[in-house]
Nucleic acid binder design. Structure first.
Lengths: 248, 248
DNA sequence: AACAAGGAATGATATGATAATTCGCCTCCG
DNA sequence: CGGAGGCGAATTATCATATCATTCCTTGTT
């Protein structure tokens, strides 16, 4: 989907400004520029620039008033659950704190989603879950990257829950899961066990066993959360480099 | 906060179009108009109109291309967790399905938030929780509307969790909670018991008892979910009139 | 010192023109 | 007859410029 994928100038500016904002590039010392300056900086007309700013305003990142200029909103007003915002944050500032908080969201939602999926999943949805598991097993056998199928599994479960908010999280989740799971997979021992753990969830869902599915998913996500906490206490809080140096 | 609160023309149009879109006003039979027509319809200039459309695009409601025009995105692409989008949906199309799905989100998140709050809440946050409970009890005694303090309580707990995503939900939640809780409160018997139930959660959080807080919150929200399911099976699926006829 | 008036900075709105994209039609060639 | 290529039109994207509205800041008056 990727609504802000840089086709046209406006979206490229949204992207650039969005990343700059969540990276903390603007502050009291370096306030957000006025329209005229931004136009010069990006070589764009006022229309384009204003439209970009409006999109960021719609995501809660900016606010503007005549004579007062445009300014970055306090972080608590950002729409963290907007796919773009979360992606910008995860790609540029994947702090342990953010990963942990996101893992807590997963811990809250994914077990419930698994339970619901066990109860209401359509055959299409079940097929998607089964496929993801099969590909995970295959990747594990062939020593390939299990990340894509791992993500596909979690997204399939969220969708299969039949809850639109949960499904929504799958979109939000994509980029966050990528970083989150990659981190988890860097521990080979954990990875091997992980395939079996995922299969257990899948089996329970396919069998319509909500309680088992919920418990198994809770175990898996709790494990991810524990790993983040462990890594956090073992290291600093900015893991940009560590994550990027992971394979692929 | 209410970013689209109708101060200027642009935001008024965002509001009007947003409501129209989520209400299903546009379809194959009645496709989304082209810029020129919308300008005429709202008596606005192209700049303003394009900026409004861009904001709705940022929220996942619209998409546009040269020569193809602007069209409404399929519902699964809407940013349901955007405060504006959810508010528009809840105010115009509060179907039982949507309320149920939202209650499931609450069921997933709020117990965890209560548990976290018990562990990490600052004294400020604890004070907010205590205040909300006190006002709830007072409203109950004086036969006033317990809705505002009820909402304040749930929001205070979400914030006290220290998890930014949970806090985020409190903003998203405000309008949804309003409809959700109002519905719950229409049953007087439930309401009376409800104050005690809330107090139990509050006490556990203030005492730092995470497990009890979590269980008590789960019970409360599960009750809300059950109520929605009960009402759903007893009635049709559009409850606009019923909710509006509730007191206040 | 308090207050009022006016100027200036900045976003909000309006208008008109041009560019880019893509769909549908038409023509011309095979 | 069919298909490829081109041409025209529709629609958004971008640019440029002008004016309005809001509000901060200065300045002057009492």
């Amino acid at each position: 989907m990727a609504r802000t994928d840089g086709q046209n100038l406006t979206y490229r500016i949204v992207q650039a400004l969005g990343v700059a904002i969540v990276s903390g590039a603007y502050s009291v010392k370096n306030p957000f520029p006025i329209e005229a300056d931004l136009c010069k900086q990006y070589g764009a007309s006022r229309s384009v620039l204003r439209e970009a700013v409006k999109m960021l305003t719609a995501k809660g990142l900016l606010s503007a008033r005549p004579r007062q200029g445009t300014w970055v909103q306090p972080e608590e007003n950002w729409n963290l659950l907007d796919p773009d915002v979360l992606r910008w944050l995860m790609e540029r500032k994947p702090t342990y704190a953010l990963l942990r908080e996101f893992a807590q969201v997963r811990l809250a939602v994914e077990p419930r989603a698994a339970a619901l999926a066990a109860e209401v999943a359509t055959s299409d949805m079940k097929a998607a879950i089964r496929t993801a598991i099969a590909q995970m097993a295959e990747a594990d056998r062939d020593e390939e990257d299990p990340l894509p199928s791992d993500i596909a599994f979690h997204i399939a479960v969220l969708r299969a829950s039949g809850n639109r908010f949960y499904s929504q999280l799958s979109g939000v989740t994509e980029s966050a899961l990528r970083i989150s799971i990659r981190m988890q997979n860097r521990y080979k021992g954990v990875r091997r066990a992980s395939v079996a753990d995922h299969k257990k969830i899948s089996d329970a869902i396919l069998a319509g066993d909500a309680a088992t599915a919920e418990a198994a998913m809770r175990y898996l996500v709790q494990e991810a959360l524990d790993l983040i906490n462990k890594a956090d206490s073992a290291a600093g809080s900015d893991l940009r480099q560590k994550v990027r140096s992971g394979h692929n």
